[in-house]
């Protein structure tokens, strides 16, 4: 694990240089959605489950930012480090293993998820859209989806050979998560099959937990969502390590 933290340390140094662009990218988009949907669509929607529309979607923006941060870091960011900068090769010439490199990537993606999730949390809280103090647990919770989205993205980065193919992952995996994950309407409005499929949607679980914490009603099966996210992470973790071994070692 020491090796993984050393890899993370390298990433943090780079992050210290590039965080402004990162902030723009990862934070602006959820805030644009929040304002467009919240004020635009919100004008036509009275209330959902006793919340104003903007209150309903605000926690989802936190989960969305967390998903984006990990996803973009561990797809485009990882791909550039792997293929263009040869950063992994350079690191592997030092006393680290492929496992360390992959874990370092996951830690970095997770850390960015938590960080940018916090930024959105602070913004929506300042806008007065977070009723409960229990929302302070959200950053801690974001470790889980941050880890899972990083692992998933790394699996794809381990397979793909062209940076343009990352679009497939974004369009075919991340977009459905985003559209059907219950960010903008309760998933109960969806057909039964899609509702079932949502059990495999990490963003859905993430949104449910963020919303429950933001409204202070954790009784609503938080444990279940957390367990699913943890189980998916644990199950998938060996995969990116294996894929990157194939990619980096010969």
């Amino acid at each position: 694990m020491t090796g993984a933290f050393r890899v993370l340390d390298r990433h943090l140094k780079v992050f210290g240089r590039t965080w402004q662009h990162n902030l723009m990218f990862n934070v602006m988009e959820p805030l644009l959605y929040l304002s467009a949907m919240g004020f635009g669509l919100g004008a036509f929607v009275q209330e959902i489950d006793g919340m104003s529309y903007i209150q309903f979607i605000a926690p989802g923006m936190i989960a969305l930012s967390a998903m984006y941060s990990a996803t973009f870091e561990c797809t485009y960011g990882t791909f550039v480090r792997l293929h263009y900068q040869k950063a992994f090769h350079a690191m592997l010439a030092g006393p680290v293993t492929v496992k360390d490199v992959v874990l370092g990537e996951i830690l970095y993606g997770m850390m960015k998820s938590v960080l940018f999730g916090i930024v959105i949390l602070v913004v929506v809280a300042l806008l007065g859209q977070i009723p409960s103090w229990q929302a302070l647990w959200i950053p801690l919770f974001l470790i889980l989806p941050g880890t899972l989205f990083s692992i998933m993205a790394l699996c794809y980065s381990g397979i793909t050979t062209n940076i343009d193919y990352i679009n497939y992952y974004i369009t075919l995996v991340i977009m459905p998560f985003f559209l059907f994950g219950g960010l903008y309407f309760p998933v109960s409005a969806l057909p039964g099959v899609v509702q079932k499929l949502n059990w495999l949607n990490p963003l859905y679980h993430s949104v449910e937990v963020c919303r429950a914490l933001a409204f202070g009603n954790p009784a609503q099966a938080i444990g279940f969502h957390v367990a699913i996210l943890a189980a998916m992470s644990a199950l998938l973790l060996p995969l990116p390590i294996r894929l990157m071994k194939t990619r980096l070692l010969s």
Binding site: K13, Q85, G94, P95
Partner: peptide, 19 residues
């Protein structure tokens, strides 16, 4: 395989960190 985001000295610093 140098880090284009970092300066000359930072490249050495980060690499030293790996060790």
């Amino acid at each position: 395989s140098l880090d284009p985001d970092l300066t000359v000295l930072e490249n050495l610093e980060v690499y030293g960190g790996l060790f």
